[in-house]
């Protein structure tokens, strides 16, 4: 028994090493399955909760065009949530259970959405910075070892790059606008810069899951590698916009051909993870409330479908 199990595991790892995609019906180690369910459902929850901070500005968008783009973007996020819940379902997780875990606080979602959106510039910052960071995290996932997840991510990434462009365009319009608008953009960057750097997760030295996830090719870059990449990508964009990145230690390092930058406030990071961010309570409450207030609607839909089925059975 023991040897057979080992062989299966070895075969599995050999497929991973050869970059062969794992599909729903393939044998997989329990821990691989659990890790993926955790990661994919967290990702789906992040899409769902991520609708709220931007949804906060749909009714106040400053022009009909912006309103339309923002609404379409938030709608895309709902769509991403759907693809991802479906991908997790292929691993045997049920949507009801995943949602129950979100609502009970057992399952996590991206901490970035626990920050409030306070001005129109935040719609720019969320698109430009938050979606920018999400893309860096997600592009490697298009090649992740689990097939349904990788395929869902190909679709997600296509739409995310459109989201990032619209965010940058909001920032650009603000920066080319009145002094008031430029100040709004800078104030937004000041608030969003550090939380965005936190999106890549804890330092490699403190990220317990990284090694195993890299080995399974669920993850392809470490947190610190991606964070460095993000800073190197964003600093020139901020300069182009004429904005100042709020980090006094930011400095080009010729030798490493990248920027040196200050340390993230890890105390704040862990605080928000633990539920003490500005909006943790509101975000979760909004989801729970939508779910509870929607219960009678879901029941009605089921009851009606059942009645219809019975009537058709009688008629047949």
């Amino acid at each position: 028994m023991e040897t057979l199990e080992l062989t299966q595991e070895e075969q599995f790892q050999a497929r991973i090493d050869a970059d062969v995609r794992i599909e729903p019906k393939d044998w997989m180690p329990d821990a691989y399955r659990k890790t993926l369910i955790r990661q994919i459902s967290q990702h789906a929850h992040s899409e769902l909760v991520g609708m709220l901070p931007e949804g906060n500005w749909i009714t106040r968008a400053p022009s009909l065009k912006r309103k339309s783009i923002l609404l379409a973007k938030v709608q895309d996020e709902a769509g991403h949530g759907l693809y991802l819940y479906s991908a997790a379902e292929t691993l045997g997780a049920s949507r009801d259970q995943m949602l129950a875990d979100l609502h009970s606080g057992k399952a996590k979602y991206s901490s970035i959405f626990n920050y409030p959106t306070l001005s129109w510039a935040d719609m720019g910052c969320v698109g430009w910075l938050v979606d920018g960071a999400a893309i860096l995290n997600q592009v490697p996932l298009c090649r992740t070892s689990y097939g349904p997840y990788a395929r869902a991510m190909v679709r997600v990434c296509k739409e995310e790059s459109f989201h990032q462009r619209q965010g940058f365009e909001i920032m650009q319009t603000l920066c080319e606008g009145s002094p008031e608008q430029k100040a709004m953009a800078q104030e937004g960057l000041n608030r969003w810069w550090w939380p965005t750097l936190m999106m890549f997760g804890p330092k490699d030295s403190e990220s317990p899951n990284t090694a195993q996830s890299m080995n399974w090719r669920i993850k392809r870059f470490t947190n610190d590698e991606l964070r460095q990449k993000f800073v190197d990508m964003m600093v020139p964009q901020a300069e182009f916009l004429g904005l100042t990145v709020p980090d006094p230690n930011l400095k080009w390092n010729e030798a490493k051909q990248g920027y040196d930058f200050g340390d993230v406030d890890w105390e704040e990071f862990w605080n928000v993870v633990k539920g003490n961010g500005m909006c943790n309570k509101e975000r979760l409450q909004a989801r729970v409330q939508a779910h509870e207030e929607g219960a009678w609607v879901r029941e009605a839909a089921l009851a009606h479908a059942e009645k219809r089925k019975q009537r058709e059975a009688v008629a047949a």
Binding site: L52, T59, Q75, Y85, G294, A295, R298
Partner: peptide, 21 residues
Amino acid sequence: SEWCGHGPILEQDLAMANIAL
């Protein structure tokens, strides 16, 4: 559009955003 993110079912959240658009 006020429903966006607060719908009773994810699929209907999408539908209402779609109709709003």
